[in-house]
Write a protein that binds this DNA or RNA. Structure first.
Lengths: 101, 101
DNA sequence: GGTGTTGTTCGATAGTTGTCGAACAAGGGT
DNA sequence: ACCCTTGTTCGACAACTATCGAACAACACC
């Protein structure tokens, strides 16, 4: 089954924003931005693997990530080039860690 | 009663993004970005005034807008300067109308 | 003081979403 | 062949959210 990675231009802006508007998913995106392509299992942010899988699906279907199989693992990476081209400044604005309240 | 307009630095990024991740609210923000300060009633996007009031509250409490009374109306404006300073590129990336699919 | 305009607030409701455990699937190694 | 690791999928459930009509509040104006 194809992993359903849509063309970014057909994804509504609100879907992209909604995908980023979750704490767990934002941590995943930050980890990807810093660490590059990573296995799903490397994102241990206090949720079960079912929940993690769900969040990765949301990110993928919002056009934020790409996934490829590698043995028993799956490697995920940020579609940064496309995102920066279509929404310049979005990722930069969102990824920089904010002051601790 | 104070309209509860929080300091932007204490609003979680996810709240800002969630506020923008709705079609009606995005239309309101776009209208504000283009038309400047406007009365609540000027945002007629096919929802009831109760719903409109709800969306304006979400935007206000996410730190995106400021509201002041003016007679029987209430004038709403975008907190663009603060947003651009704290999240440079965010609004620009989101406000530009996307290609029609 | 009454009437109309403009918004807000209050239930209520339907839909969406985040979360989990359990079951399942696909590989790799021994 | 067996088992372990790695992920996905499947209900199920709680929490949140978008929406509405109706009731209420504040102000202006006659």
């Amino acid at each position: 089954m194809e992993p359903h990675e849509p063309d970014l231009t057909v994804v509504p802006v609100t879907s992209v924003l909604a995908a980023l508007a979750d704490d767990v998913r934002l941590q995943i995106v930050r980890a990807l931005a810093e660490g590059g392509e990573s296995a799903c299992g490397s994102f241990d942010f206090g949720v079960s693997k079912a929940t993690r899988s769900h969040h990765l699906k949301v990110l993928r279907e919002a056009g934020l990530t790409r996934t490829r199989a590698a043995g028993t693992s799956r490697l995920v990476r940020l579609r940064r080039d496309e995102l920066d081209k279509l929404y310049p400044g979005l990722l930069d604005a969102v990824l920089t860690q904010r002051p601790p309240a």
